[in-house]
């Protein structure tokens, strides 16, 4: 039981939305770096895969090295490659964009484990019940298809009908598996539709069951999120923290605005890890006391 497992889905969704939105709107390297660090930390605390960090490093390296090959902007020439300049600004922008993308990726996948399909259904149900239903069915069906395909493959292997001697054999066998899975999906679709109709879907107005309660803690968190995101968002919309990458890296003249944005956004990025860490500490203390 951690903070976000009991947190109201709307607050959780708003949190991840504002975290990602701010970093993509502000387009400031300092904010992106904060977001990246906070996101990676929270992702690790939530039990994310360590392999993700390796991929992240590779992605940053690749983007940094590849961006100058496609973007010849900037004035600080480091190398001349086939007559075209490789500039420091271009390298920096490559690293920056990779860090920004990864930050959003970390936040979405970390918060994703708290935004389960029932919560998403609840969130979307408020806007459009039909869209919410389709969305949740789709979310369930994609992994289901994968599981079904694995089952078919296993069955074929057990019966000696799956040839994996070389890639042509395997391709042929996979086509058969795909055919079986497609037939299954079509049949299952008809069955599901019949089943839903038999249970009276679309008959009259639907009521919904909401197991989520908006607690006082949720209200406090919502207020914090709104305030902490409003500062950097307002500053980036008014251009107070507009960072320019080309032709020369230029930090905005208003240092106060930048520090304001960095502090508030930093708090926003650190909060999930702190909330999570507090729960962990409490749990450990309770365990050692027992």
């Amino acid at each position: 039981m951690t903070f976000f497992t009991v947190c109201h889905p709307a607050v959780t969704a708003l949190y991840v939305l504002l975290l990602s939105l701010t970093v993509s709107v502000a387009f400031h390297p300092l904010l992106s770096l904060l977001s990246f660090c906070g996101g990676a930390l929270f992702y690790t605390l939530c039990g994310g895969k360590k392999r993700m960090h390796v991929y992240a490093c590779l992605f940053i390296a690749a983007m940094t090295l590849l961006n100058p090959l496609f973007s010849r902007k900037g004035t600080t020439v480091l190398l001349v490659l086939n007559g075209n300049p490789v500039t420091a600004e271009s390298l920096f922008f490559g690293a920056f964009s990779a860090v920004t993308v990864l930050a959003v990726l970390y936040w979405v996948s970390a918060f994703g484990r708290f935004l389960t399909s029932d919560r998403l259904l609840y969130l979307f149900g408020a806007v459009s019940p039909k869209a919410g239903l389709v969305f949740s069915i789709a979310l369930r069906y994609l992994p289901l298809l994968g599981r079904r395909a694995a089952a078919v493959r296993e069955a074929a292997k057990a019966n000696g009908l799956y040839g994996d001697g070389n890639w042509i054999d395997r391709f042929r066998s996979e086509v058969q598996v795909f055919s079986a899975v497609t037939t299954y999906a079509l049949e299952k679709g008809v069955l599901t539709a019949d089943s839903m109709e038999a249970r009276g879907i679309g008959v009259g107005r639907r009521t919904s069951y909401t197991p989520f309660r908006f607690r006082r803690a949720d209200g406090a968190l919502l207020a914090f999120v709104l305030v902490a995101a409003a500062v950097p968002l307002t500053l980036s919309f008014t251009g107070g923290i507009a960072f320019t990458f080309y032709p020369v890296l230029t930090t905005p003249a208003d240092g106060l605005a930048v520090w304001g944005a960095v502090l508030t956004y930093g708090a926003l990025c650190a909060a999930p890890a702190i909330l999570y860490g507090r729960e962990e500490l409490k749990w450990k203390r309770l365990r050692s006391a027992a």
Partner: peptide, 22 residues
């Protein structure tokens, strides 16, 4: 001053920036 260009020659070259002015 650096000249940034795109293209592979033979009438495809396009100058995108000169001296960092893009």
């Amino acid at each position: 001053f650096a000249v940034a260009s795109r293209g592979v020659g033979g009438g495809t070259t396009y100058v995108t920036g000169i001296n960092g002015l893009d």
